[in-house]
Design a protein around this nucleic acid. Structure first.
Lengths: 336, 336
DNA sequence: CTCAAAAATGAGAACGTTCCCAAAAAGTTT
DNA sequence: AAACTTTTTGGGAACGTTCTCATTTTTGAG
């Protein structure tokens, strides 16, 4: 591999001048610049990341931390992140926190050690010690949170979907459709986004003058590698076993809703006449299942793009609105 | 951040000794080692990646190049890769080649510039100039191909599923089930894996003494962001429009098969009595659609694990069997 | 107790950049 | 043409490691 010195020799200048050309800094005579550029091309030179990084402390690399990699939600978000990252010459590490023995903290330490320039953080569980650590990290380097992880988010950058408001509005929609008995399935209350959606559900009921009947709320505690489909099926069976059952079920995520549909189909329950279902996420599967799932859509890719824009702006010390909340969109299909 | 010199001073030794402790190399007195380790812990020291990389040329980073990121096939493969990578202290760049203006070659150059230690390469299109370039790259640093990209693969490392053999066997299965009119849907013939599967189909027919009827082969040329579902639906409609139609359709990938099912359902065609469907990939969706899709399953995660094991072994200069072929498994469900 | 061998440690160069500062070249004014 | 700016260029230190080689310390045999 050619070094900056080889280029300097080839072009008959000093390495300082070559450096100036590479970085478009300082002054350099047009003729000299051209000579250097030709030498660079001739030798196929490109600066060493190590040496550059050693001086500048920058890696042109950002990390996107996700709790659950195979979830298509994060793949889609990653696309958005990558869209923007590549545009600015950055590469992206995808870091899966959940499955591995390494905790969020360990993983983050590794990222710091690798001099990552910025982090896009998708958390999962409400966990105060992790949260506190991350808040500290976010003072050290640009971090964007994709989630309302802290009670006080005023000092951090974030981009997220307003799950609370989205679900609240969905309840209104159901109410207007004539539903009065509205069930809710939560997979795990220690997941902050799930928690937030649930609170939106409660608020929606309250808005409409309905009371939350605890037996219509189906809760599951966290599992290691959750089988959402099974969870939805179990929930559907539970609801059907009730004498006083809801006439529509809200699922905290689409996959659970899809499990419900599968089970209701199997039990020959008519959807939506006997029982409605509504999901959250608008994963591609939700339009493929029959009947197609009514759900709340999130601008996921946009979410990723926005987060990446913010992180990179912060890396470059630019001013940018770093607190963005998107709204979900109700997509009415065949299950309501 | 503490440097190796800070640690040296703290422990009262030279930086050479600290380096020896870090890397577990050379000789160092137990008492000294302990003192150094304490100093490291006390200062929260960890070696700088830049400085280390600058000396060793290694980044402890591998890249996984994929043609289509949102395809769950690759997410699953990534899990396998990450399983192994993290075990050995590596991190993984996921590189999406298809959607971006940068070609495979440009992307690979960027990886080389970043001193990636090894590459796991999922190609997409048969393209000789790219292939030639990649072959050259694979001489420079450890590369594992996840695909039979070259006519002569004898000199490269690879891990892949034998699509040819898998489809050939599936044809035998269909034949044994009494099918004689077997259709085939290809999304794109310039994708090497797809091509290979198709050849397996032709061979299977030949084995069984059937002739390939060109009108039963539904071909689509490559699209930019292909809508496989629509493609499958179109194909199903095409087949149903034939007076002499196949009694079973093989789809080159599950998503297409699922599109077929959707359309056949919509047309009230009885599956599998009036028309059978068989897919390839066993994506999670294939068991969720109704009726559930018969398909060919690939040990995807294992694929990724194996690839990562090979790359890392090669990085470390270890001997390992670097040419592995897995067989697909026929998963019989409700569509045949 | 001496001396050789082995074990442990340290000094300093090197890796390829960036950046500060000094020096040289070019341009401008008197 | 001299003196003074301004522009352009070069030299060398620094970044934090690893690694070679030399030096010091320890061990063990005679």
């Amino acid at each position: 591999m050619a070094t900056i010195l080889d280029v300097a020799k080839e072009a008959g200048v000093s390495k300082s001048t070559v450096s100036r050309v590479i970085n478009n800094e300082g002054t350099v005579k047009p003729a000299t610049r051209q000579a250097v550029e030709e030498a660079i091309k001739k030798l196929g030179y490109s600066p060493s990341y190590f040496a550059q990084g050693m001086r500048t402390g920058l890696t042109k690399t950002i990390a996107m931390v996700v709790p659950e990699y195979t979830n298509p939600f994060y793949s889609e978000m990653f696309r958005g992140v990558e869209d923007v990252a590549l545009k600015y010459g950055y590469m992206v590490f995808v870091c899966n926190t959940e499955r591995h023995a390494v905790s969020d903290i360990e993983y983050t330490k590794e990222l710091l050690r690798r001099n990552i320039d910025g982090i896009i953080y998708n958390t999962y569980h409400r966990n105060d010690s992790v949260a506190e650590y991350l808040k500290k990290v976010s003072k050290q380097l640009p971090v964007v949170f994709m989630d309302k992880i802290f009670d006080d988010c005023s000092s951090v950058s974030y981009v997220y979907i307003d799950g609370y408001e989205s679900v609240r509005k969905a309840v209104h929609y159901l109410y207007n459709q004539g539903h009065r008995k509205i069930g809710y399935i939560l997979n795990s209350e220690d997941i902050s986004v799930i928690q937030e959606r649930y609170i939106g559900y409660l608020k929606g009921l309250e808005d409409c003058g309905l009371t939350a009947d605890e037996k219509w709320v189906y809760r599951v505690r966290r599992e290691n590698e959750p089988d959402y489909i099974k969870l939805g099926r179990d929930a559907a069976r539970y609801y059907m076993s009730l004498s006083d059952r809801p006439d529509v079920i809200m699922a905290a995520i689409d996959m659970i809703g899809i499990g419900c549909i599968k089970e209701l189909n199997a039990l020959h329950v008519k959807i939506p006449d006997e029982m409605g279902v509504i999901g959250f996420d608008n994963i591609s599967l939700s339009s493929l299942i029959e009947p197609a799932l009514t759900t709340i859509s999130q601008p996921i890719r946009k979410l990723g793009q926005t987060a990446a824009e913010i992180v990179i702006a912060k890396i470059n010390g630019e001013e940018i609105n770093d607190q963005v909340i998107f709204q979900g969109d109700l997509i009415v299909r065949e299950t309501t």
